[in-house]
Design a protein around this nucleic acid. Structure first.
Lengths: 142, 142
DNA sequence: CTGACTGCAAAAGGTTTGCAAAAAG
DNA sequence: CTTTTTGCAAACCTTTTGCAGTCAG
């Protein structure tokens, strides 16, 4: 669960604050969370925390490598713990549901990009758009 | 170049308007364009066209399959002609440059998603984030 | 003519910023 | 004590919406 997150921050010259701890904990416990969602979670404990603090904190946490974010669909980005198993988001453009699959599923593709154009893929950041199985099924019935 | 775009619109019960023609032409000529960019292009010819019209028009054009859009990075989506060869965007998270590779490069991966989870990928909509060859090179030097 | 489409202005959603007060080291 | 960090309010940017007038069919 908790790592030496405070060490990591300190090493990068950042200070340790309750807000940063709370945001990090919220990211870890929620799994997939937007800034707005994180605010709600954090405010359960500390009601006075502001949205702009969430944004600034996420920026810092990402900078030191304690969290990552991915863009899913049009709206807000979602933040992930770095401790999580890396995964790929499958976004259904019909029902907007998001499924995750293990990052290894893309290994072949990632390797191909590396060999072919020297591109190093950040797998966890990838969003794959398309139609999920349920929506395809539903379409067939019509 | 131009197709029977007016036919397509009509078939779907939409009307033919100069705005729609201009937006479609702009998408086709610009290749990768954001709504804002498209507005600028369209306004070269018709200065009175409004941004909201661009948005509404793109929605219609996408609905009837004359254009597609993809999400690249944080900001605005970019719209593409459907006549273009389908391609995948490789977005460099360091320099923000976008390279395109032919959609076929992902065939194996797409097939895997189909077999494994029944997900039908919209290849042209996929954005792959990571580090481009140049940025990786630059990082090694430091 | 009649309903679809457009322009305009205002609202909405998400993110950023300036500043003074509060807290970390 | 010094510097970073925070809360607040306002600004910003992109996209959406309501409405009345306009235009395509």
């Amino acid at each position: 669960m908790s790592r030496d997150w405070d060490e990591v921050l300190r090493e990068h010259g950042f200070r340790i604050t309750p807000q940063r701890q709370l945001v990090l904990e919220a990211v870890n416990s929620l799994g997939h969370a937007t800034p707005e969602t994180l605010l709600a979670e954090v405010q359960k404990t500390a009601g006075a925390v502001n949205l702009s603090t969430i944004y600034r904190t996420l920026e810092v946490l990402e900078q030191v490598g304690l969290v990552t974010h991915a863009h899913i669909g049009h709206g807000a980005p979602t933040y992930h713990s770095v401790d999580e198993d890396p995964h790929i988001h499958l976004v259904c453009d019909t029902c907007s549901k998001v499924n995750s699959i293990p990052a290894e599923s893309a290994d072949v593709f990632v390797q191909l990009l590396r060999d072919q154009v020297g591109f190093e893929t950040d797998v966890a950041h990838v969003s794959v758009h398309g139609q999920c199985a349920e929506c395809l099924e539903r379409m067939k019935l019509l």
